[in-house]
């Protein structure tokens, strides 16, 4: 050691590395073991198809409509569902923010998350099935017959189940963003003559937009990776043959793990494109704190 008075540990601490930094290690190990390693493994595997060519799997995927069509099928489910959930969650969050029994109602709305997609799917098969309460009530009311309305084993079955299981998640995130906006801002706008529609347009929407973009991304990723309800409630051979089904079939019916990995990579890329696109649009909006004052 030289005569310089500052010990190595102190210099490390000054640059932000000290004992507390070690607390990051468990999370790092987890991310490496459960995300980075499997992802890299899958990525490399996807470039080693059975036929031996480098891009064989990707060539196969994009030349077979039965495979590349799943991208569109999944988007056709995930995008409308996510938008609908978001559009429905905003007014509900606004209403609940001002209610006294906020916690009770929030709990009820969030309950479907705890049920899991399979239980919801089973319930829906009964409730929305040809002999279920829903269709029977409609036919008693003369609004349709079991023959004309079909709500399970098709697109709408999966759509409904994604709404039911996705809404609580979207709603919880939205509520936290809506609650983050200072009530005084709305009061100030009201005293300045802004009616509720104008207050929403000029104050809430611009302040909420960045948060809603994040909510959209998280909800979209969840909906895009739909699998159980697409099988149980949809028509997995046709209209709801989503991309995860294609990957599943490749892996466990054709035992072609390499192709399955390639499909998973395509799935990830599509999600990434949508997420990056939405997040980039955030830069159009103000993204600072949504409070009316400093600190």
């Amino acid at each position: 050691m030289s005569g310089s008075a500052i010990p190595f540990r102190v210099r490390l601490a000054a640059s932000g590395l000290d004992g507390v930094t070690l607390l990051v290690i468990p999370a790092m190990v987890l991310i490496l073991a459960l995300f980075v390693y499997p992802f890299s493994y899958g990525l490399i595997l996807s470039f080693h198809p059975k036929d031996g060519s480098f891009l064989g799997n990707y060539g196969h995927f994009f030349s077979d409509p039965f495979l590349y069509g799943t991208i569109y099928t999944t988007l056709a489910l995930a995008l409308p569902v996510t938008l609908l959930n978001l559009v429905a969650a905003v007014p509900v969050a606004f209403r609940i923010r001002r209610m006294r029994h906020q916690r009770l109602i929030t709990t009820i709305l969030v309950l479907p998350i705890t049920l899991g997609t399979v239980l919801v799917a089973e319930g829906m098969l009964n409730y929305f099935g040809p002999q279920g309460w829903f269709i029977r009530t409609l036919s008693i009311l003369g609004l349709g017959s079991p023959a004309s309305i079909k709500l399970v084993h098709n697109y709408w079955g999966v759509f409904l189940s994604l709404v039911i299981t996705g809404f609580p998640f979207t709603f919880l995130l939205t509520l936290s963003y809506v609650s983050g906006i200072d009530v005084a801002l709305e009061n100030a706008a009201a005293t300045l003559g802004a009616r509720s529609a104008a207050r929403f347009r000029t104050i809430f929407l611009p302040l909420l937009a960045p948060g809603l973009a994040i909510t959209f991304c998280l909800s979209f990723v969840q909906a895009y990776s739909v699998f159980p309800s697409a099988v149980l409630l949809g028509a997995p051979a046709g209209p709801t043959r989503v991309i995860s089904i294609a990957a599943y079939e490749a892996a466990f019916e054709q035992y072609d793990y390499s192709l399955a990995s390639a499909i998973a990579m395509v799935m990830g890329a599509v999600q990434l494109v949508v997420v990056v696109g939405v997040l980039m649009s955030r830069s159009l909006f103000y993204r600072g704190p949504a409070a009316g004052a400093k600190g």
Binding site: D182, A184, A188, T191, R195, T202, P206, A291, G292, A293
Partner: peptide
């Protein structure tokens, strides 16, 4: 309604529109 009164109000925490 508050919008129709047309009074100016100054709030304790300013309540400026941050955006």
């Amino acid at each position: 309604a508050v919008e129709d009164r047309g009074f100016g109000m100054v709030f304790q925490n300013y309540a400026l529109f941050p955006h």
